[in-house]
Simulated scan of single mutants.
Amino acid sequence: MDIRVIRASDIPHVQTANITNLPENYFCKYYLYHAQSWPQLSYVAVDSQISFFQSLLAKPSLVQFPSSTSLLDTGFHRSSLRSASKSRWDFRPPIPQPLLLARQTRKHVLTPSKVSRPPKSPYDPPKIVGYVLAKMEEDPADGIQHGHITSLSVMRTHRRLGLAEKLMRQSQRAMAETFGAHYVSLHVRVSNMAALKLYRDTLGFEVEKTESKYYADGEDAFSMRMDLSSLRQAMIDEDGSDEDEGEPVGSMGKKDGAANPEKEKETKRKVKVGRALGVGELVEKNESQKA
């Protein structure tokens, strides 16, 4: 599973996920508007590895079985068909399909080589299983720079994996880091209890107000908001944690240099070095000591 910034080539697949899961749908140019105006805020979850069993469930006709194997079971065995008129106890209940498949393929192990599908190439489109579409409010009514979550969706096959939370947190961090957003807002249906649990209990959003008949079908919406000040402070602390390990250079590098000039004078001492330290002074000093 990979979470990355949305690309222009992802927009048709993002729109497919939106139409599949949500009643609020948008045109492709609306997604492109978000991707081009705020390219750092919208993210997608890509499932690059599709398991063999998922492909088997999606297209069971692609599985090739030996010619002697038959997957049809009507519930009557050949012996019971011949003696069906003799006894009514010859009827046997149908075998469950998973048990039947395991029994008839006992000697034939299903492996990816049994599936007749072309191998995956770099030109295959990515499998978008989730996305978050976000933007910055261009003309905020309160005059405070903040972001807004336009749409969030995860495919049913990939839910309960924490993808929605990861997508939201990545977008929120980009809002605070790139645009200096103070908070993020969104709208959610009053009846969408799963989304309310995610926003309120997991992410920490608070209901600011209820907007009547916000959606096209007349349903009310909760206007929710989350403060990003703690996230911004955490990023500042992370930046300030990298202290310089070198020695202080100059007056700007010394912590007490400007505050205590007298202390700095006390530590200074005039010494002679090089040619200033002559031999004559040493001779005179020695003679005076002898005298």
Rank of each mutant, 00 (worst) to 15 (best):
A35K: 01
A35Q: 10
Q36V: 03
Q36H: 08
W38K: 01
P39W: 00
Q40I: 03
L41V: 02
L41Q: 03
L41E: 01
L41M: 05
S42Y: 01
S42V: 03
Y43L: 05
Y43H: 15
V44P: 01
A45M: 10
V46T: 11
V46H: 03
V46A: 10
D47R: 12
D47Q: 14
D47A: 13
S48L: 10
S48M: 04
Q49N: 14
I50S: 14
S51K: 15
F52M: 15
F52I: 13
F53D: 13
F53W: 12
F53Q: 05
F53A: 03
F53H: 11
S55N: 14
S55G: 14
S55V: 07
S55R: 15
S55T: 14
L56D: 09
L56Q: 05
L56P: 10
L57D: 08
L57P: 03
L57I: 09
L57E: 03
K59W: 08
K59G: 01
P60F: 03
P60R: 06
P60Y: 05
P60M: 03
S61I: 06
S61D: 08
L62Y: 04
L62K: 12
V63Y: 08
V63F: 13
V63G: 02
Q64R: 14
Q64M: 11
F65K: 05
F65M: 04
P66S: 07
P66H: 07
S67I: 05
S68V: 02
T69L: 03
T69R: 07
T69F: 02
T69V: 15
S70P: 06
L71I: 09
L71Y: 04
D73L: 01
D73S: 14
D73C: 11
D73E: 15
T74V: 10
T74R: 02
T74Q: 03
G75F: 11
G75N: 13
G75T: 10
F76C: 06
F76V: 12
F76L: 13
H77R: 10
H77E: 14
H77I: 08
H77C: 05
H77W: 05
R78P: 08
R78T: 07
S79V: 11
S80C: 10
L81G: 04
L81C: 12
R82H: 12
R82G: 08
R82Y: 13
A84H: 13
S85R: 14
S85A: 13
S85E: 09
S85Q: 11
